[in-house]
Each structure stands twice: as structure tokens, then as C-alpha cells.
Amino acid sequence: MKVSGSVALVTGANRGIGRQFARLLLERGASKVYATARNPESIDIPGVQTLRLDIADPASIEEAASVATDVDLLINNAGISTHTNLVTGDLETIRLEMDTHFYGTLGMIRAFAPVLATNGGGAIVNMLSATSWFSHDGDNAYAAAKAAAWSLTNGVRLELGKQKTLVTGVFLGLADTDMVADFEGPKVDPADVVRAALDGVEAGKLEVLVDEWSAHVKASLARDPFEFYGPSLSS
């Protein structure tokens, strides 16, 4: 999969990592970039083709797929973070997390898989998170939804391999975006996240670990979970 000459569609392209995807795809030679958002008027990137798209709305997804029939690179970036726990949190808010990160991503893949097949297979990038692999008190709905999206990514990769579609999962800790503005700690430049993701796609990688934190968390899965969660359980 080559970025240069590709036709890409980016969800959540009005800010943060999605905005950098749209910008850098053009910079790296994509022939067309569909930049999508629930409010496309908020997209201010010269050279893109804007589309209205709400990934939590199946009808909106189908409409976008009927327009963007030349796509061969799908970037599933749109997401939310409601900072909701599972035991005491509002169930509708928890469902919104799952509807966005799992069902929304799945809806995009189901709608665009035939488009990608027609256009030679292409690639899908799913923006995931280190929280696909660990939970955090205060944000457990997000972690559960991202864990589901990771499993989804592994599953559709097997199914779409038959049509030669590459499916790449991208993982990181914190990027310097509005979503995590209130969090303290090291944050990755969103442009660096996008560069790593696009380099990974061109290299045919199944997973891209953007930062050391993501690599650390994934490595911890092979160890006793008490090593990771012990201090939190005793506090």
C-alpha cells in the first residue's frame, strides 16, 4: 500500500489526530482525501473534499460510502472519551462509547470493505490506544470500548485478508489533542502519530506502537496482571 496516489477517507478530520491525517496524506501525495466530520463546516484544510459523517449513525455511514466509491485507504480515527466508569457510570454514556469505537468502526468497515475490494484491496487504519490493553479507574468505558475495537481489528483483518486488504492497528498513550487536554504527562505530537501510522501502512505492518508506553503496556499482557494493577488495587 502506497500513500502517494491513494484515495483516502479520514473520520473525525476536523481536529486532533484526524486533522493531521488529512493534512499529511495530502503532503505525502494522496490524490484525494475525503475529510469527514459530523460538522464538515469545521474542517479548514485546503485541498480536501469534505463530507458529513457521523459514525454512530448507520445511515450517515451508508451515504458516505455511496459518495466515496474511489477510496482505497480508510482511516478510522473518530472517537470520544466520556471519562465514565462501568459500575456506577451512566449506561447510556457507556453505550455511546461502544457505539462509537466498536459499532461505529465496524459500520465503517462493513460499508467500505466492498469499496476497497473493488479498488484493489487497499488498507484500513484503526486508531486504537494503549488502553486497548489496560483499564484506568475513571475512564473504564473508554478502555472497554477500545479493547473491543482491538479485537474487532484482529477479526476483520482475518476476514479481509481474502480480498488483500491490509488492516493496521495504531496504538499510543497520550497525544497532544483537545481530548486529553486535562491530563498531565508526556504527550506525543499528533503529526508524529500520523507519520508513524502511514509509515506502518506502507511497510505492511499489522500493528504500529507509536510510543514506549504502548510497547510497555502490551508487553505487560504476558505477565502476572498484579504487577501492573497491584499498586492501584492497594491505594
Score class of each variant (00 low, 15 high):
Asn39Phe: 02
Arg95Gly: 09
Leu73Phe: 11
Leu172Pro: 14
Thr131Asn: 15
Ala13Glu: 12
Ala203Pro: 05
Val193Pro: 12
Thr118Val: 09
Gly107Tyr: 03
Asp57Met: 11
Val180Asp: 05
Ala30Leu: 10
Lys2Arg: 15
Ala30Ile: 10
Val10Thr: 03
Gly230Ile: 02
Ala117His: 07
Arg19Leu: 14
Arg23His: 11
Ser132Val: 06
Ala111His: 10
Ser232Ala: 13
Lys164Pro: 02
Glu97Leu: 05
Asp72Ala: 04
Ile75Asn: 14
Gly185Lys: 12
Tyr142Gln: 13
Ala64Trp: 11
Ala8Met: 08
Ser214Val: 10
Arg195Trp: 01
Glu159His: 11
Asp199His: 01
Ala175Arg: 10
Gly104Cys: 07
Thr69Leu: 10
Phe102Gly: 02
Thr93Lys: 13
Leu51Phe: 12
Val71Met: 11
Ala141Trp: 02
Phe134Arg: 14
Met108Glu: 09
Phe183Trp: 15
Glu97Trp: 00
Val170Arg: 06
Val217Lys: 14
Gly16Thr: 04
Pro186Trp: 10
Asp189Met: 02
Leu166Tyr: 08
Arg195Leu: 08
Ala113Tyr: 09
Val87Ala: 15
Pro46Phe: 00
Ile94Gly: 06
Asp137Thr: 13
Leu174Tyr: 13
Phe228Gln: 12
Val71Glu: 10
Val180Phe: 10
Ala222Leu: 10
Val201Glu: 09
Asp99Tyr: 00
Asp224Ser: 06
Ala8Thr: 02
His136Pro: 01
Phe21Cys: 09
Lys205Val: 00
Trp213His: 15
Pro114Met: 09
Val194Met: 05
Asp44Thr: 04
Asn126Met: 06
Ile75Ala: 10
Ser220Arg: 12
Arg38Met: 05
Asp178Gly: 09
Ile17Ser: 11
Arg52Thr: 10
Leu51Ser: 00
Ser129Tyr: 04
Ala68Arg: 13
Tyr103Val: 01
Lys205Tyr: 04
Val194Cys: 07
Leu53Arg: 04
Ala148Asp: 05
Ser234Arg: 13
Glu27Lys: 15
Gly200Val: 05
Met1Val: 06
Val125Lys: 08
Ser60Asn: 05
Gly89Met: 07
